[in-house]
C-alpha cells in the first residue's frame, strides 16, 4: 500500500467517524468540535486530490470562521437537550424504516455501478499542468461559470437582506453620536445659567 493510499484511508476513516460523532455525541460543544475535526480531515482529502486551494479554503473559512462562530453560538445558547430528544423515540421507527429503504436503494445503485473506463481521471474542466489551482479556478469562474457565479452572489445578497430583515431591531433609549447635531450646538442650547444662592447650593 502506497503512502497516499494510507493517508487516504486515515483521513477518510476519521472523517466518517467524526461525522458520525457530530450527530451521536450528547454534548453540543463536542458535536461542533467533531465537526471541526471532520473539516480538517476533509481538507486533507482535498490535498490528496491535488486541490490545495479548496483545502486551504476549507480550513480558513469553515474551521476558522464558520465552525468557531458556531461554537460560540452553541456555548451561548442554553439548549436543553433532554427536551429536544423527547420526540426522538416517537419518530424512530418511521425514520429507521425510511433510512433502511434508502440504504437498500443505495446498495442496489452502487452494486450495479459500472464506471466507464475512459472517464476515470477526466475532470469536467481539465486543469492545465502549469496552472496553480487558484488560477485554474479563476479562469473558469469568470468565463464558463460567470452566470452561476453572479447568481450565487445574488443568493448571498438575499441572505444578507434576510438576516437584517429578520433580526435587526432599532432599540429605544440608546445614545448615538450625531456629529452634525453636536456641531449645531450653541451656548444658548447647551448652557443653562443658574443663580446659586450663597450658602444653599443647587
Amino acid at each position: 500500500m502506497s503512502l497516499t493510499a494510507l493517508a487516504f484511508y486515515l483521513f477518510a476513516s476519521i472523517t466518517v467517524f467524526s461525522g458520525f460523532m457530530v450527530i451521536a455525541s450528547k454534548n453540543p460543544v463536542h458535536s461542533v468540535l467533531f465537526l471541526i475535526l471532520a473539516f480538517f480531515n476533509a481538507s486533507g482529502l482535498f490535498l490528496l486530490l491535488g486541490a490545495e486551494f479548496l483545502a486551504m479554503l476549507l480550513i480558513i473559512i469553515y474551521v476558522g470562521a464558520v465552525a468557531v462562530l458556531f461554537l460560540f453560538v452553541v456555548m451561548m445558547l442554553d439548549i436543553n437537550y433532554t427536551e429536544m430528544r423527547e420526540g426522538f423515540l416517537q419518530y424512530l421507527p418511521i425514520g429507521a424504516l425510511i433510512g433502511l429503504i434508502v440504504l437498500v436503494e443505495l446498495i442496489m445503485v452502487v452494486g450495479v455501478w459500472q464506471v466507464a473506463p475512459e472517464i476515470i481521471g477526466t475532470p469536467a474542466v481539465a486543469a492545465a499542468p502549469d496552472l496553480t489551482n487558484t488560477e485554474a479556478l479563476g479562469a473558469v469562474l469568470y468565463t464558463q461559470y460567470i452566470y452561476a457565479f453572479q447568481a450565487a452572489g445574488i443568493v448571498l445578497l438575499i441572505a444578507m437582506i434576510g438576516a437584517i430583515v429578520l433580526t435587526l431591531r432599532t432599540r429605544e433609549g440608546v445614545k448615538r453620536q450625531n456629529i452634525s447635531q453636536q456641531n449645531r450646538r450653541t451656548p444658548q442650547t447647551a448652557i443653562e445659567i443658574k443663580k446659586v444662592k450663597v450658602g444653599e447650593g443647587l
Binding site: 447568481a151 445574488i154 443568493v155 438575499i158 441572505a159 437582506i161 434576510g162 430583515v165 429578520l166
Partner: peptide, 11 residues
C-alpha cells in the same frame, strides 16, 4: 435559480 427563489421566500 431554485435557491435564489427559495431563500427569498423563506425570508
Amino acid at each position: 435559480g431554485l435557491e435564489l427563489q427559495s431563500l427569498a421566500l423563506y425570508v
